[in-house]
Design a protein around this nucleic acid. Sequence first.
RNA 1: GUCCUCGUAGCUUAAUGGAUAAAGCAGGACUCUUCUAAGGUCUUGAUGGGGGUUCGAUUCCCUCCGAGGACACCA
Length: 570
Amino acid sequence: MEEQLNLFLKSLIPESIDFSVEPSARPDFGHYATNVAMKLASVRGEAPLTIAEQIAKDAREKGMHLLSRVEVARPGFINFWLSDSALEEGMKGVLSAGKKWGRPASRAGSGKPTKNEKKTIVIDYSHPNIAKPMSVAHLRSTIIGAALYNVFAFSGWKTVGDNHLGDWGKQFGVLIAAYKEISNLKNKKSNIKIEDLLVLYVDYTARMKENPELEESARRETKKLQEGDRENTAIWKLFYKISLAEFKKAYSLLGVSFDYYLGESFYKSMLPEIVQEALYRGIAERSEGAVIIPHEGIPSFVIQKSDEAFLYSTTDLAAIKYRREKFKADTVLYVVDNGQSLHFEQLFRSAEKLGFVGSMQLMHVKFGLVLAEDMKKLSTRAGRHVALLEVIHEAVDRAQKIVDEKRADITKRKREKIAKAVGIAALKYNDLSQNRQSDITFRWDAMLSFEGNSAPYLLYSYARIKSILRKAGRFSRGKVVFTNDAERNLAIMVMRFPGVLDKVRETFFPHYLAEYLYELAKTVNSFYENIPVLKAEKEMRRSRISLVASAAETLNTGLTLLGIQTVETM
RNA sequence: GUCCUCGUAGCUUAAUGGAUAAAGCAGGACUCUUCUAAGGUCUUGAUGGGGGUUCGAUUCCCUCCGAGGACACCA
């Protein structure tokens, strides 16, 4: 609808300039508003209000099939009210699109992308480290990445979800050295758990600080692993297997999946060549025995250590090259916390110099760190760690208590199913409803909200509409007609959906979708509170059922894109 | 010390150049003889300080104050 108005306005003015058509902030500002007159004012050097009046007059004459009212407001906005026939037409489009409502192709005026136009986006998210349990910090990357993945996939992009596991590097030297210490004493390889690995790691790291011999030993094990030593490779494979099984438990609970698990180790064969090429072309240089890529204004990027080992910087360069060559990526998103801003700046600039980038867009989709209540970073290395599985279970437990209390009337099995969906949804929505790049303080209560602007609210709204629809029995969706503003507002809210998805794809911020779904749910709740649906007369009943059903479908689609599973009853 | 992110109501957040700064929680007042009260309706309350750019600044620039993070051979 925004697009239609946009095109209409463009037809009214001779200049081609950028302006916006947006849903109005308040009911008395109409359904949509544009700032076109204010933008023109600076171009033409005339008063915004005068221009607005001219355009409004034009719009009234030429746009009556679309608009019922056009008004000018200070300091130069033009507000539009859609006509009932335009709303009817719009809802017809929504109903005929069905489950596909929201896809770019489902809108009038924009054809399906042809094969050649289809763009590819690689999304690098979650990326936990092997041999360390996933923490709450990984949760953010995982669910933000998954939501972006869903939105792009739904919108017709070719999407590649890549879990760039931290499965290579110095940490394994530490772990292997620590593991060898204990496995010499008792050989109990088979039942070692990921938590044990964390303990080994933290303990060894602590002792290493006081004992340089241990550090040297860890360094040696790293080197041996990287050179393909058989024993160390076997131990590494064991860690890998244990860890991945553990990660997949969390992914399964969260309903997240990946197309690829191309961890750091995957790129190891590409690394020597990259460093050599960089040196040969004079992009990299030697410094204090290491190989670095220098940059203006920011610290140099070390791509090979003085002991000739490679680093994650080297791996990341290889991954950029691979993603361009193999996946033909147009865009690569790195869903990683703020703490690594400098790394990505160095990485992107280095890759650019090496010619790995071309027209590809590289984007660090950053988010704030998860801090403990004392405002200090939660770090695995410091042994400050909140396990992700623990958080998920806590969320479900808390939801269970509430469901048991509210729905004693249904079976235990149903209550458990609802609790699982609601608990996990609450956890996800908490992150997805914020765009904050500032840090987050980890607190159970804040993380698991069950009231107000929260996932349970959205799920509840959906469940209530579904309940109405069940009671409606068999019905055919028909023409939506408009007799009051509650109906008009709900229809407009539903029609905003595709524009919201556009915004998510432009900004890479899923919270615009979360915010929209909350607005939609509020509008629906208020609608069925005030307007009878099932008790309405024949024509009206069918119209309102259709309207409410399309709102439910939009909620369902939107929540699914956020990675939140809806429930029919709660 | 340098750089990055950030500072909005008592708390958690929204608004990234547009209108009277928007919500949730907490507080106060209503609302279950009508489609699920995890709901609905009303209400109290905020842009860290100071300059600047602009028709218009929470948003851009400068400066001060405050928080967190990063700063070459960890990932």
